[in-house]
Amino acid sequence: MKIMKNIKLSIFIFVIIITSFIGAGSTWAADPSVVKIDGYVTDQASLLRPEEKNELNSLLSDFDQKTSNQFLVVILPSLPPGENLELYSLKLAEASRAGKKGLDNGLLLLILKEDRKIRVEVGTGLEEKITDGRAGRVIREVIAPAFQEGKYFSGIKKALFTLINWVEPSYFPEGSEGARFQEENEPGFLFFFTLFILFIIISTYLSRLDRRRWYKRGFSQRTMRPVIYPSSRTRSNRSSGSSRSFGGGGFSGGGGGFRGGGASGGW
């Protein structure tokens, strides 16, 4: 009897200790106020015609498969009451999990039809290619002017072309529609490039001169050749697209992270 009692007691203590140590860990609950995203393009404001939506969808899906960057377009009639544009867009982006885990190469273009507001939410990994200034520029110079004329589809498409070209300059084949949205080299770059070439020419010339002089004096020949490194470009998993799933729960991206980069604007 006594043993039975002891065993019961020890089980009781065991349970108490275990439960008290485990405790309920606080987890991020899914926010119910966040709209469900059903694909690369979600249009709840009927801003686009079905064939327009399909065209954007296949562009973004192909871009995802070839480069693993996940760009999403979400169009809503207006912001849910009590929400702030930036925080809401971040919530949406996080819920969509756009981008590949680790690379964080997701992007969300949020358009609020009645509020006439636009937000470009840039994944942490793309912040260097799409700086806040660039994100703002695409809103001011590409989307807003088109939207003011009621050209919603072309505004969104051109914006996506521009953004894609910033992230993967070689994605659009030469001569294709998207390639026209490649930015010309910034003047600063061209200037420095010319300087660099000039510098190489001059230094090669000088080193040759030097060598000849040394040669005459009987010094051993020095090899001084400017080294030009082949331009290497880092590519992020070109062959394998990022994981994503569509069934039942709508779109769910590869788990990319966001931290509030991007820009807001309106039209």
Binding site: D132, G133, R134, G136, R137, R259, G260, G262, A263, S264
Partner: peptide, 18 residues
């Protein structure tokens, strides 16, 4: 200036998220 303002706004936003 517009771009600088975007950068500043973006930084403010990132700061508030952080």
């Amino acid at each position: 200036f517009a771009e600088l303002q975007d950068e500043l706004a973006g930084t403010e936003n990132r700061l508030s998220v952080a």
